[in-house]
């Protein structure tokens, strides 16, 4: 039997990711929701590790858990006038539920009909150094463009969120 991803670790992490997502959607407190998202993100980072994408795992945790969640919390705090505002009414959307169910069902059907043709995990998994080499050789131009995109977005974000001069 060829080795694949550890089933127990996968089950725990997948459960944690789904738990985080469900928690984020069901909690009434916006701040709690941000923390649930954080938990879900960390679980996904763990899944990346299982897939031997170490670099991505680290970057993912840094970006989503580190930066994005903190940013979210900042914005939540800046836009709340009172502590009680963080607790919101329960919002249920039938349309959303229908859409999500239809979508999820379809994807499941597609996966089921496809079958698990690649059940075995290929032995070789290139390491982070190989990824780095790829990024700076074959993908060098898109990589630089991506950095430019980030820079422009950063400047634009600063521009938009600045206080209006009166």
């Amino acid at each position: 039997m060829t080795e694949t991803v550890n089933g127990i670790a996968f089950a725990i992490l997948a459960g944690a990711a789904i738990l985080g997502a469900v928690g984020m959607l069901t909690t009434r407190n916006v701040i709690h929701a941000a923390f649930w998202l954080l938990e879900s993100m960390i679980a996904v980072g763990g899944l990346f590790l299982l897939l031997q994408a170490e670099y991505l795992a680290v970057v993912h945790v840094l970006v989503y858990a580190g930066a994005v969640s903190v940013l979210m919390l900042f914005v939540i705090m800046l836009t709340l006038r009172r502590r009680e505002d963080s607790v919101r009414p329960v919002e249920v959307s039938v349309a959303g539920a229908v859409m999500a169910l239809v979508f999820g069902g379809l994807v499941f059907a597609a996966i089921a009909s496809y079958g698990d043709r690649v059940a075995e995990m290929p032995e070789t998994a290139p390491d982070t150094a190989a990824l780095g080499e790829l990024l700076f050789s074959r993908w060098a131009l898109p990589f630089e463009v991506a950095s430019l995109v980030l820079l422009v977005a950063l400047v634009a974000a600063v521009w938009w969120s600045r206080e209006e001069k009166r």
């Binding site: 127990i8 990711a17 789904i18 997502a21 249920v92 959303g96 999500a100 499941f108 079958g115 690649v118």
Partner: peptide, 27 residues
């Protein structure tokens, strides 16, 4: 227990659907 790509795809589908619901439902 064998965990193949379809397990990951199923998990991704669940997460995506949950996100879809949230994007529509939350105000």
């Amino acid at each position: 227990m064998q965990v193949g790509p379809s397990a990951f795809m199923a998990l991704a589908a669940v997460l995506f659907s949950l996100g879809l619901y949230g994007a529509v439902a939350r105000k």
